[in-house]
Measured scan of single mutants.
Amino acid sequence: MISLIAALAVDRVIGMENAMPWNLPADLAWFKRNTLNKPVIMGRHTWESIGRPLPGRKNIILSSQPGTDDRVTWVKSVDEAIAACGDVPEIMVIGGGRVYEQFLPKAQKLYLTHIDAEVEGDTHFPDYEPDDWESVFSEFHDADAQNSHSYCFEILERR
């Protein structure tokens, strides 16, 4: 099963200049909980913004210009990325925008964090048809001392 995991502000903004323009430790914990011990696929820009392999996960970098870091697996196509994951129950696609666009048609599940923030962004989550998805989990949280904005975790499964 292919799943996408993303944090989205208003207007589906997911990033600005290779960074997330908010401070939500709870979302980072949600991300870790849902990706640990699963292969993660990301684009080169996302890889560069993280700066290191995510521990406890097979890191697969999709790029037309593969790098030389041998701590991760470099691939040039969506099919190659899927094959590099091996026989696993769930593959997690973690961004960025172009990689989400490439995998959305193949995805069966979306793990979304909806952030109540209007922020400037240069990267967006692809538009998706809500009628194609069923919400199977939703959990709202107010902003607090650690988390700069209110947010809602949601899991959607393709109908």
Rank of each mutant, 00 (worst) to 15 (best):
A19N: 13
R12G: 01
S135W: 06
A29M: 02
D142Y: 10
N147P: 01
A145H: 10
S150Y: 05
I14S: 01
E157M: 06
Q146M: 08
E154Q: 14
Q108S: 09
D144E: 03
W133T: 00
N18C: 07
L156D: 04
E129Q: 13
N59Y: 03
D27G: 00
L156C: 02
D116H: 15
V88S: 12
N23P: 05
R33E: 12
H149V: 12
I61K: 00
Q65L: 08
R71W: 07
F153K: 05
S135F: 13
A83S: 08
E139V: 06
D132C: 08
R44A: 11
F153M: 12
R71V: 05
D69H: 06
L62V: 15
E129G: 13
R71F: 07
N59P: 11
A29T: 04
F137P: 03
T113N: 09
A9Q: 02
A143L: 08
Y111A: 03
A7N: 02
A81C: 14
Y100A: 04
M92K: 02
M16E: 02
D142W: 11
I155F: 06
A107I: 15
F153W: 03
E129L: 09
K76H: 03
R44F: 04
H141E: 06
F153Y: 04
L4S: 03
I155C: 07
D11L: 03
H141M: 05
A9G: 06
P105V: 07
E118L: 13
L8P: 00
K76C: 06
N37M: 12
G86K: 11
I41Q: 01
D142T: 09
W47E: 04
A84G: 04
E17V: 00
V72M: 12
L62I: 15
G121V: 01
I91R: 06
K38R: 12
V136A: 12
Q65F: 08
A84V: 08
K76E: 14
V40E: 02
E48G: 15
Q108P: 02
V75T: 08
Q146T: 07
H45T: 15
E48L: 13
D11Y: 01
P53I: 05
Q146Y: 09
E118G: 14
F31Y: 05
F137H: 09
F31M: 04
D87Q: 11
G86I: 13
M16A: 13
T113P: 00
